[in-house]
Design a protein around this nucleic acid. Sequence first.
DNA 1: AATCAACTGCAACAATGTTGCGTTAAATAT
DNA 2: ATATTTAACGCAACATTGTTGCAGTTGATT
Lengths: 130, 130
Amino acid sequence: MKTTRNTAAKTAVLEVFEKSKTALSHTEIQKQLNDICDRVTIYRILDRLMNDDIIHKISNLDGTVKYAKCNHSHQRVHIHNHAHFSCENCHEITCLENVKPSYIMPHNYKVKEINFTLSGLCPNCLNSNI
Amino acid sequence: MKTTRNTAAKTAVLEVFEKSKTALSHTEIQKQLNDICDRVTIYRILDRLMNDDIIHKISNLDGTVKYAKCNHSHQRVHIHNHAHFSCENCHEITCLENVKPSYIMPHNYKVKEINFTLSGLCPNCLNSNI
DNA sequence: AATCAACTGCAACAATGTTGCGTTAAATAT
DNA sequence: ATATTTAACGCAACATTGTTGCAGTTGATT
């Protein structure tokens, strides 16, 4: 079994996630890291963090991909089936940990994962628009 | 106001969508068209068809982007807020026109659009796996 | 301190999407 | 039927995002 190591770059990436309240794209992470490491390294760190269930991947409506820290506080078995909100004004993506959709599926489908993304205006932008 | 024209390439793309029961990626469309036009042209046709509400865009969990014909039969005002199913085995994406999730949002968010994608095994792959 | 393999940087590549520009052709008017 | 207008096209060039191979580095363990 492969062990994973705590390198300087990995720690820096984790700090960026810690500081951020919203989901981040690879490019955003790279900017915040001020080129302390190669962009390939960031991709590999993100892969490792996803394998270790420390972050999860979110693909937005427009095809952009972001990553956010997992919140393990609520449940023992960790599932990513929570909703995400994508603001059309500031383009920030936030996890809505407590929003879980209910739905009825047609027969003969086996659902393993769900991705529920809502878009519109976040509280910040909603207030400043009035 | 810009008028849109019925070109040979646009007609061909529409025929491809007509024949397909599932959502298609740009690459899949290009293959089915047998290089009757440039790939840039396909991008531009897809843009136009989306503007005209003839097709809609679906971004998958893994970041891949597909397009599917809109089904206007049910409602007068056309909304894309239906669910999509992405099969992890055959990678086909189908529209689940009748699956609409219910959910409860936190205050202060203004939801305008929703993207609800489920993944797992489609009926075809579920049967052939047994 | 020595060892081992996870990790990194670099280069090169692949896939996907965009833009500018000169040319072609669809729709309309003549 | 022909001329006109401009949407649409092909081509080239570029931007972004993500992947892979490999030699060198460094974190964790003995």
